[in-house]
Design a binder for these strands. Sequence first.
DNA 1: TCTGGGGTCCTAGGACCC
DNA 2: TCTGGGGTCCTAGGACCC
Length: 403
Amino acid sequence: VFVSDEPRELASILHADLDSFYASVEQRDHPELRGRPVIVGGGGVVLAASYEAKARGVRTPMNGREAVALCPEAVVVKPRFDAYVDASRAVFDIFRDTTPLVEGISIDEAFLDAGGLYRVSGSPREIGARLRERVRVEVGLPITVGIARTKFLAKVASAVGKPDGLLEVPPGTELDFLHPLPVERLWGVGAVTSRKLRDAGLFTVGDLASVGEPLLASLLGRGAGAHLYALSMARDPRRVEVGRRRRSIGSQRAMGRRPKTQEDLEASVVGIVDRLGKRLRKAERVCRTMILRLRFDDFTRVTRSRTLYEPTDGTQVLMTAARQLLDDAMPMIRDKGCTLIGLSLTNLDSNDSLQLALPFDEHHQEKLDITIDGLRDRFGAGAVTRAVLIGRDPGMAAPMLPD
DNA sequence: TCTGGGGTCCTAGGACCC
DNA sequence: TCTGGGGTCCTAGGACCC
């Protein structure tokens, strides 16, 4: 018989969320900004606003001019992303020192599973309080912690507990906590879903729960309906996942409304591909699918994608694919005008089994040698442990590579 | 709200395979 | 030539999040 002094049904999932992250880093590094409204702005929009600025109605991602109109005495500072990345690393070190079960969601928030730590570290509430104290003392930033039995409820709790707070939803009180909240508090209810729900007369989470799953499904589709109904009943089976890997890498550029030539667009694409290739190689990943994203003068969007025959991290291969996608899209662009161009790389994989391919012909043995030499060049002779020859066309028997 | 840049996940149809 | 049931992969669009 296993006897534990850990209370059953403990609320043990923590959602830790730094408050007004970029703005707080600026206030930490520039003491004269403390207590004053601070707006971190870039590209014409508000990236972050301190609570003093939020009190005046400033929000992200609000237009910069509008924000200054709302709060003329605000100090507007340019973002310093390197400083934010450093601060984030320091905070995540504290997270991982608290428990190995850390799932990062973005630069400034993460889930932590404090289950099983009771005898070592105390109750989740004690763990959360200590975490907040350490982040304040060691990194100098305010952070809010929400605690609940499920991930999504912990996230709602941290949002409700902001700023600089700690809020636990004790087991058994979930529905009392959840049902009075507006539907927009649910993770996954954005502008569109919110409008649909309100048009149907559903305003609070309690309304969703009482109206039942079938009606939600008819309103939002079966998947979304089932998901929202489960959330409204505080049911969320998702566990804290450690070691999730990025699934796509992308970069985009807003172009403004001025007319632009095909050369302008190609130059943008070249810059984006160059940046993405570097990021891909730095992350030691390869990709197989490229997606071209376009936004037109009327703000409609399309995507065009292409999956390569083999994974790559090579700038030249990516460049060729990007050019093809752009060429195919040029008629559309000429017709509707382009205000944004972007590329995403997906179908990511580790690059530990990178393939190189060359056309197969009478010089095949020579080309095989070149290919294998290329792999050894790239990864070091010891890293190439196995080579497999793959034939593409039916009927083209591929000889096995000699050992 | 005349609108940045980085992501995640889901849905749906069609081609193709066994 | 038509019919089933069980899949995978690719492409495109859309909602949502920070």
